[in-house]
């Protein structure tokens, strides 16, 4: 892209009461991504423009917004791939807008918490007091790794037509994370978590439009997770499968954080030649 090129950025703005489109014409020098463009506008043209950002490398999940009609991360959307003379930027759908491009994420966080997104063990104390790691293979890890890529950017929720109709729907993010722990070879919360997602606003609300997977910037593929979880739930209901035994640690439990380790004496006899 030529350094002297200019582009028009249109931003859907909101100040608490009024909504409007605002246009900025801005040079593309030093600009790669839409986030660069927004930063340039904020620094050079309009200090009042509000948007979230942080890592600039697609890992923190801050900069989700709807760019030219599709929910995307601004830092991961290059101007060149948009292939348009005008960049239209709106706040994410399906979440309440607070100011300009910033939306409230309360329901994202609450729904994520609802599905118990952590390792559940029959013996809870194993988590803190086992002397070593669970024995898991790389293949075992692959069963959930993809779903663990979730950066909680809210894009899937912005894209999901079911969330649009039923704001109480658990949503692709939370359901995807339920499956992430369900599929973890160390987890023993299989039955518990399946009961959680089988709810009026739960898993059967999903009709597989696949929009969540389509916009996911990290290949979490929530649509896949949700359909596979439906299969697990049916197995449970048809009594084909009753539960799941997690990977084991056979050694006896022991205190993890000991005075001994805090006050270990330095080695006296260790010599290092170089």
């Amino acid at each position: 892209m030529n350094g002297s090129d200019e582009i028009i950025l249109r931003v859907r703005r909101f100040d608490g009461t009024r909504e409007w489109w605002q246009s900025y014409q801005i040079g593309l020098t030093g600009v790669t991504s839409v986030l660069d463009l927004l930063n340039k506008v904020r620094e050079e043209k309009d200090h009042t423009l509000a948007f979230r950002q942080s890592c600039h490398m697609g890992t923190c999940g801050s900069c989700g917004m709807v760019i030219n009609g599709k929910p995307r991360l601004a830092c991961q959307t290059n101007i060149s791939e948009l292939d348009a003379g005008v960049v239209n930027v709106e706040p994410m759908h399906n979440s309440p807008v607070i100011k300009d491009l910033v939306v409230g994420l309360d329901s994202l966080i609450e729904n994520h918490k609802k599905v118990k997104p952590y390792i559940i063990r029959g013996k809870k104390e194993e988590i803190f007091y086992a002397p070593r790691e669970f024995e898991v293979t790389q293949e075992g890890t692959t069963q959930f790794l993809q779903f663990d890529y979730c950066i909680m950017c809210n894009l899937c929720i912005s894209a999901c037509p079911t969330v649009t109709i039923d704001p109480l729907f658990l949503g692709p993010q939370a359901l995807g994370q339920a499956f992430r722990y369900l599929a973890d070879p160390r987890d023993e919360g299989w039955a518990e978590r399946l009961e959680l997602v089988d709810d009026d606003h739960g898993i059967w609300r999903c009709h597989f439009a696949g929009a969540c997977s389509y916009v996911c910037p990290k290949d979490v593929d929530p649509a896949k997770a949700i359909q596979l979880m439906k299969k697990e739930l049916l197995k449970k209901r048809l009594l084909i499968r009753r539960g799941k035994k997690g990977a084991e640690i056979t050694e006896p439990l022991q205190p993890h954080f000991t005075e001994e380790k805090l006050t270990a004496a330095p080695p006296l006899d260790f010599k290092r030649g170089d």
Binding site: N68, K70, A209, G210, A211, Y214, A223
Partner: peptide
């Protein structure tokens, strides 16, 4: 379904 995938 504009801007989205064929499944949508």
């Amino acid at each position: 379904p504009r801007h989205y995938n064929i499944e949508r």
